[in-house]
Design a binder for these strands. Structure first.
Lengths: 207, 207
DNA sequence: CTACGATGGAACACAACCGTTCCGTCTCAA
DNA sequence: TTGAGACGGAACGGTTGTGTTCCATCGTAG
């Protein structure tokens, strides 16, 4: 079948091309299903139904659920991580914490995040994608934020960057990882938390 | 059927009682399935197969998968949280961190933890059970540890306990929540982490 | 204009799971 | 000794999912 049209004069053929709008509708429906049902429970039938397409249209583009989800995850990650750069460590940290608590306030994000984290436990490809797409950009943003502070002399020159990033990310994203119950208006609690983070960062010295 | 044997002289009947060893075998098999497949994918058939019992034996004890898992979770939680009490804050914290990093080193625990966390996003009963069984005991242990330190004067009297518990639990369990990749021998990294936690705790003052 | 090929929709065969129901057997409280 | 009832095992009907295949239709590159 592969060379059915081959011959002395290969006519590369007429038209009919994957419609980009459908490709997009499928991606959107898949994300919605992922949010509603989670990775394990989401079904190709439901995606097709939701997108208003035939299942064939999906399988023409992706071999199965996994590559579809991986692509969605990668695309989501490409939406940049806003990196605060206010000129002072305190305000940068505050921006970082605010962004984290905004994540927590969004149940859709929470579901996808915890869901894929769990799934990554059993799926190495997904784990790699999560690390690349979710963890690394945030750690990188944190690291840049810290380096600037070191340059300004707001943090010790012998800062243990790895440990400091752990602390920054860990404390800022602490609550987003425990989905039990309502996103209390963290605005109240942000200032003391920033204070604590600053104290912790100052203690992250090498050796 | 409920009063088929009722009458003037209700004979409370003969014998045949749920066999405790089977009940236990089922619980064990269910936990194994939960670890291997996760909540969403685990099936009653697989549990029965694994336990070497008929499905009827399971449904005689639990109405469905949910109450079965809830019971298992509750029982696991009853295995006490070891609460270090060494007499100094530093050593208590170190014990706390060690226990957390031991959890991370155990892939079975990691899978169940992340899995049920994700599931809790969609199942309020499970969320409540997780909070009661997983979160509260650890927070309570942390709070007691902190109160002792305050009494000894190792922490300020106006300690914001809630925030401090957040920091302690958050920093100690940071890595256990991101399952990507190998449990690096945290023994190396424990001392600096303890140092950071101590600094953070000291900064958790009220107002 | 033409014909290539993607389209939505439907149906396919196959598998897994659920929760129930039926067996014939065996255990144990009364 | 008796009989209520739990036991393993098997099968049930119904539902849901997967990935494939067929169709008549329609948009479009050549």
């Amino acid at each position: 079948m592969s060379d059915a049209t081959s011959g002395p004069d290969r006519r590369p053929a007429g038209a009919a091309v994957l419609r980009a709008d459908l490709t997009d509708a499928i991606r959107q429906a898949a994300l919605a299903e992922l949010i509603d049902s989670g990775y394990a429970r989401m079904s190709m039938d439901a995606i097709a139904r939701r997108a208003g397409v035939g299942k064939a249209a999906i399988y023409r583009r992706w071999a199965s659920k996994e590559p579809l989800v991986l692509e969605i995850l990668t695309r989501l990650a490409d939406e940049a991580v806003p990196l605060p750069d206010t000129g002072t460590l305190r305000e940068d940290v505050e921006g970082f914490v605010r962004h984290a608590s905004a994540l927590r306030a969004d149940p859709r994000t929470m579901r996808v995040l915890t869901d894929l984290t769990a799934e990554a436990t059993r799926n190495p490809r997904l784990a790699a994608a999560m690390q690349t797409s979710a963890e690394q950009p945030r750690r990188a943003a944190g690291a840049r934020l810290l380096h600037r502070a070191v340059d300004r002399g707001e943090l010790p020159a012998d800062l243990d960057t790895e440990l400091a990033v752990d602390c920054l990310v860990g404390l800022a994203y602490l609550r987003p990882r425990t989905p039990w119950q309502p996103a209390e208006s963290l605005d109240d609690g942000i200032t003391p938390l920033v204070e604590v983070i600053l104290a912790a960062l100052a203690a992250c010295r090498r050796r």
